[in-house]
Design a protein around this nucleic acid. Structure first.
Lengths: 244, 244
DNA sequence: CCCAGCCTATGTCATAGGTTAATGCACGGC
DNA sequence: GCCGTGCATTAACCTATGACATAGGCTGGG
């Protein structure tokens, strides 16, 4: 089904954020990964769970989500192919958020005890995993800023920039067009906006010629313009080999 | 000057979030820590820096902050005694945010190369440090939710709950009264609100009998009421020995 | 004792964004 | 072909919050 094996996806990801030696990569190749498919809007992990495995995203879009006391949902981060969303659960026994599929997704599950053993014996691999969670944290910081201090239009442009940039850097974008089968309601939950206002802001972005949409496809017509509109700077994504 | 040594503060913190053995603690006692005092509103670390040390907070209140393109500031998290705010810098070579004192503060600096050596040789200590950064990430997640989906009044109550709870769990609160010499402008930067609106929300909290303030002191008159008003649940702080 | 600099408090007015609800459109099932 | 469901779109109205202006404390310095 997938063009590459799940181990390839994991190893390429870790190499893209960290220095690994041949020996480390051999160790990683020994990890048992169990693949599984999910529909959109499935809660893989819930607040209060004590997970015994973590998963790498092989395909699709996920989000970490939280619910407020009066039932409103906030998506606190997106995850794309290569990401390991709930690696945090490796050392946080009780989860404080949910991990939910936002589109259909294919995931690869890895047992915590296996990961812990590897981390104990191979400090460089432990560092790579640690760094992965630190980048997640950097994204959360940027999202606090995005939601707290940018207005809706800028905020919308910013999140599109992040999604497009991350998808491109893992080779999931063809011809400047991203396939994002995500609803406007979900975008609202990520931006702290109502569905209606998400719609208004998308229209404004189209009107100004920055994006075009056809069905679930988003076309960045003017990437420099979009990054300017979104006050987008890639530093917080901590890519080692910044893509174009 | 301080009642306990800086090493004590560090070791107690790590013990409070992780399982350490006697041998680990002996290793930690060998860490060289250099103490230093700072005034309020001093940028210890700036976006773009490549720090060679990290610091533990011995006294005072710090924040991680980001600036948007049009110069607005967002505080993305608070740090109190025991916290190691920029431990993230150990594995993120370029910083993506600032670390700023919000009050006068006393800090203890530790060299990155020393920390890296310890982490390579003592996986349990590495895990403790890693866990510290994971808890930071959990706080960032909660803040995204707080700023994105709670209204100003709830948001204000929530942040007060977090501050009071964290100060209490490191023994910095006497008689239910927290000394918080932080300006309303800074609270606004943490909440994504204007100074004026922070003022209005504080008044509302006082009017409803949840808090009282005298100078820089905040008195939680009705803790259960305050946590209800703030939709506050301590799970995301990942304390091992939940305080009262 | 007075002044300067900061912070908190208040009032007025403007507006970004929320809420609600109606409409339309595409797709899948039968 | 028809219906149901989920989503995007649009419009009308409303409110939470921001912007701006000003006044009134504190505090520390000389």
């Amino acid at each position: 089904m997938s063009p590459t094996s799940s181990l390839d996806v994991l190893i390429r990801k870790l190499q893209s954020i960290s220095d690994l030696r041949e020996a480390d990569i051999e160790v990683l190749k020994g990890i048992q990964i169990q693949e599984k498919d999910f529909l959109a809007n499935y809660d893989l992990v819930r607040e209060g769970d004590r997970p015994v495995n973590s998963f790498v995203v092989l395909d699709g879009l996920l989000g970490s989500t939280k619910l407020t006391g009066d039932g409103k949902r906030q998506i606190t981060s997106f995850f794309v192919a290569g990401d390991i969303p709930d690696l945090h659960g490796l050392h946080l026994s009780v989860m404080d958020c949910n991990f939910t599929t936002l589109t259909a997704a294919r995931l690869g599950f890895m047992r915590h005890d296996a990961l812990r053993t590897i981390c104990e014996q191979h400090p460089r691999i432990a560092t790579a995993f640690w760094r992965s969670t630190l980048i997640d944290a950097a994204v959360y910081r940027e999202w606090v800023t995005n939601v707290g201090r940018r207005e809706a239009y800028t905020r919308m442009a910013h999140i599109l920039c992040e999604l497009i940039f991350r998808l491109r850097s893992v080779g999931r974008i063809q011809d400047h067009v991203a396939d994002l089968p995500i609803t406007q309601a979900a975008l609202g939950d990520a931006l702290g906006l109502s569905t209606v206002h998400v719609n208004r802001m998308l229209q404004e972005l189209r009107r100004r010629g920055l994006i075009a949409t056809t069905g679930s496809r988003v076309h960045a017509l003017d990437w420099p313009g979009l990054t300017r509109a979104g006050d987008f700077d890639t530093t917080y994504l901590h890519q080692r080999n910044p893509a174009a």
